[in-house]
């Protein structure tokens, strides 16, 4: 097995401790940080695929993501900032008025696992806070979540606020959650909609990957 293949297996197996020794050994052998990064991201692509076809389960995918992050921590000092944000930067949050956390966190972790940098703003995030985050963090994409029909309108508010701040063209917007549909996404002018975690990852990759 090549040294990159060894690293990939450690990520796929969710070996959160083994990956540390693995990356250290690879760096000592003279493997470039960029190559290590590539291997880690490719491993997560494979994990994502195994999950989509039903061979891996969410806790295992998240464990693989954790392994990848442990590996990333070792190579980050040697990467340029654009390399370190890997595939792109995503800001995620549950919209104003909604305190549902776990679904949004899960999607965030899955997106992170696919090799994106994810900043989680938490729950009950107002349109103003999203706009602020876009200004300061300059993400490539923001992901809005809600579980409640009553808070759907805050998704529209957030998109309108981005427009008013002149930032709409700077960032892609995807939305998700139980009451959300493709029709709703189209109606409020979101760039994409994802009905579940697996498709959220695919949608992010399609838009900014």
């Amino acid at each position: 097995m090549s040294s990159t293949e060894v690293l990939m297996q450690l990520v796929i197996n969710g070996d959160t401790e083994g990956i540390v020794g693995g990356v250290q050994a690879a760096l000592e052998d003279g493997l470039e940080a960029k190559i290590v990064l590539h291997a880690l991201v490719e491993a997560m692509d494979r994990v994502g695929e195994e999950w989509r076809v039903g061979n891996m389960f969410i806790p295992e995918v998240l464990l693989s993501a954790k392994a990848m992050q442990n590996g990333m921590a070792l190579i980050r000092p040697q990467l340029t900032s654009s390399e370190a944000s890997m595939r792109g930067k995503v800001v995620i949050g549950t919209v104003q008025g909604d305190l549902h956390d776990i679904g949004k966190s899960l999607v965030g972790m899955m997106i992170e696992g696919a090799g994106f940098e994810v900043i989680d703003l938490g729950v009950d995030v107002s349109a103003t806070k999203f706009v602020e985050a876009v200004k300061t963090l300059q993400p490539d994409l923001i992901a809005l979540s809600t579980l409640l029909t009553t808070t759907l309108s805050y998704m529209l508010d957030t998109i309108n606020s981005l427009k008013e701040a002149g930032l709409r063209s700077e960032v892609k917007v995807i939305i998700g959650g139980a009451p959300v549909t493709q029709e709703f996404a189209d109606a409020i002018g979101a760039d994409g909609y994802a009905p579940d975690g697996a498709s959220a990852v695919l949608k992010v990759r399609e838009l900014i990957g």
């Binding site: 969710g14 389960f57 969410i58 806790p59 295992e60 998240l62 464990l63 954790k66 776990i102 966190s105 899960l106 972790m109 139980a178 549909t181 493709q182 009905p195 579940d196």
Partner: peptide, 26 residues
Amino acid sequence: LIDPHTLKYFKSEYYTPKTVNRFVRG
């Protein structure tokens, strides 16, 4: 989600039916 306790038991505690729908509508 990735607590070791979850990882240890998430399969063995549950019987997963093989031919049921486990999707959101879309």
